[in-house]
């Protein structure tokens, strides 16, 4: 495992590449230098803090409850992150909270309940982290697409409502299209894995000296988990957000775009 340790010197040397990025930004007048340096510093601080807490959380002597508490915090942070990334989506924080909680409960039950991984802090935290982290992007895409579809297609939605369709039926074609868009990128990622890119978990394991085939098995299981979690999230967001955008008497609320 020592081969995988880069130490502070290695980390410092890797900053050369940040320097390259900053240099390119300056050369091309992109004005992203400050942003890059801020992101670099912030990522390091966040990861270091996480690393030190993880040392405690995944210690074999630490009760597993701490690992689950960590998962709860991640769900909360996911909700806040989704709200920051898509502030125009009404109620997105609560919806994300509900969706990630449900998908985490289902997926983690499969992983640990069926004994795919042993239920220890070392497994709970990174697996939940990968699932929740990957879910945020899909949640944001799905909710934005639903909002845009219903705003742009308002005349068609209202024509369906005017025919006496309930909101669930009147919105279905548009919500379905938005959910397909949100899920497609995850499906494409799953298809491309190994051919186009080597995903993080597998790369990390190989760098840490694990047998590549073992690393592949771990990665494949994680990809399937992520796919399941993303699908669960997207569908929950689809149902929850659409419910939010219609009144109980089957009217489409006013939306930012497409209103007349």
């Amino acid at each position: 495992m020592d081969d995988a340790s880069i130490g502070w010197v290695g980390l410092g040397l890797s900053l050369i590449l940040v320097g390259v990025a900053v240099g390119l930004s300056l050369w091309q007048g992109l004005r992203l230098e400050r942003e890059m340096l801020w992101a670099t510093g912030r990522a390091l601080v966040q990861l270091l803090a996480t690393g030190y807490v993880l040392v405690f959380v995944i210690d074999e002597d630490t009760p597993i409850a701490w690992a689950w508490a960590w998962v709860v915090v991640m769900v909360g942070v996911a909700a806040l992150t989704a709200r920051r990334r898509a502030p125009e989506v009404p109620g997105i924080a609560l919806l994300t909270l509900a969706a990630t909680s449900a998908s985490a409960a289902i997926s983690l039950f499969v992983v640990f309940g069926l004994g795919i991984y042993p239920m220890v802090g070392r497994a709970v935290v990174p697996i939940a982290g990968m699932m929740i982290g990957n879910s945020i992007g899909s949640i944001v895409v799905a909710s934005r697409r639903i909002l845009a579809e219903l705003a742009e297609r308002r005349p068609e939605v209202e024509a369906r409502l005017a025919l006496g369709q309930p909101w669930q039926q009147a919105s279905k074609p548009f919500v379905r299209s938005a959910l397909r868009t949100a899920l497609t990128s995850q499906i494409e990622n799953t298809k491309a894995v190994g051919l186009v890119f080597l995903p993080g978990a597998m790369t990390g394991l190989i760098l840490a000296g694990a047998d590549p085939v073992e690393a592949v098995l771990v990665q494949a299981a994680i990809m399937y988990l992520i796919l399941g979690a993303v699908a669960t999230n997207v569908v929950i967001i689809g149902l929850g957000l659409t419910r939010h955008l219609f009144t109980p008497d089957h009217r489409l609320v006013r939306l930012a775009r497409g209103d007349t």
Binding site: P155, E156, A159, L161, A162, G164, Q165
Partner: peptide
């Protein structure tokens, strides 16, 4: 839903599905 079936509506622009 009953009201809207009893009170039909045709909109300004055609809305073919």
């Amino acid at each position: 839903l009953e009201l809207r079936r009893r009170v039909g509506m045709v909109f300004q622009r055609p809305t073919p599905f």
